Simulated assay, not measured.
Amino acid sequence: MNSPGPVLSQHSHMLVKQRHELAEWFGFETRNKYEILAASGQSLGFAAEQGKGILGLMMRQILGHWRSFELHFYTPDRQEFMRASHPFRWYFQELIVQDGQGRGLGRVVKRFSILSKRFALYDALGNVIMEVSSPIWKIWTFPFMRQGKLAAVVKKKWTGLLREAFTDKDTFSIEIEDPTLSEDLRRLLLAAALYVDIMYFEKKANS
């Protein structure tokens, strides 16, 4: 049984918009906050990186996406429906995803690659259920393949030169190509979209 939260299987197209904070205009990395929307503009929820005091603030500036962090996902009425944790490690980084009741949904694992961006999605039993391999020249497109077929695509949207240069205010679309994807897998995809943003588009991560 799925935990309370938005029914993602009702939506074949979703948007994830990062919320802007003034400090980012000055190169100061702040906690990531996102709004999750249906294609119609309906709010499906929010996600926010949890603060860890002064130490967390320092690690965010110094370590970028290598830091440990947690993302919490909420419905529009502020009920938590999913949580994702990222332990600190230099290699084989991963995002561990659970529903709001602590039930494991799976993991998003970054694989080693030089000329492409590679991820694998694992279910709660440790089986690979999707893979991403996107060449470095397609910097904003992440195709999720399932058994050799396109299951979903995560794409970063252009937000304008000034915003791209000075802030982390990113917008991503999640396009579901396989209508048979389960609710758990769609939630794992949602977490993966935010992970893509943190891994590749945080200013500190790229510098």
Rank of each mutant, 00 (worst) to 15 (best):
W90Y: 12
G41R: 03
K203S: 13
Y74P: 00
P179L: 06
V7A: 11
L190W: 00
P87E: 01
V196M: 12
G126A: 08
L15N: 10
G64W: 09
G56C: 07
E29S: 12
E94P: 03
M14R: 11
H20I: 08
F166K: 11
A84Y: 02
T180A: 05
E80K: 13
Y200R: 09
Y74F: 15
E35V: 14
K204F: 05
A120M: 08
M59P: 00
M58F: 04
G53D: 06
L22A: 13
S85R: 13
L95P: 01
L15A: 12
I139N: 04
Y195S: 01
M14D: 00
Q147M: 08
R118A: 12
E175I: 05
F73H: 11
K33R: 15
D178F: 04
P179K: 07
S85N: 12
L115W: 15
D168Q: 12
V128P: 02
A38Q: 00
L125E: 12
G102M: 07
S68R: 06
L37F: 15
G41W: 02
K204E: 00
Q18L: 12
L37K: 14
V153P: 02
D184A: 13
D197C: 08
V132Y: 10
F144N: 03
K117E: 04
V128G: 02
L121M: 14
A165G: 05
I129V: 15
L181E: 10
L8T: 02
L181V: 12
A152S: 13
G53Q: 08
S68P: 03
V7F: 08
D77P: 01
N127M: 08
V7Y: 10
R78T: 11
A39N: 09
K138T: 06
A23W: 03
G126P: 12
V154P: 01
A84K: 01
F119E: 01
A84F: 01
Y34P: 04
V16I: 15
I54S: 13
V16Y: 01
R67T: 00
R103K: 15
S116A: 15
I198N: 05
K203V: 09
L15I: 14
A152T: 07
A48Q: 04
R67D: 03
T171M: 13
G45Y: 03
P6A: 11
L95H: 05
P6K: 08
P4V: 10
S3C: 14
R67G: 00
L150I: 02
E131H: 12
G41I: 04
G53C: 07
L37C: 14
K33S: 09
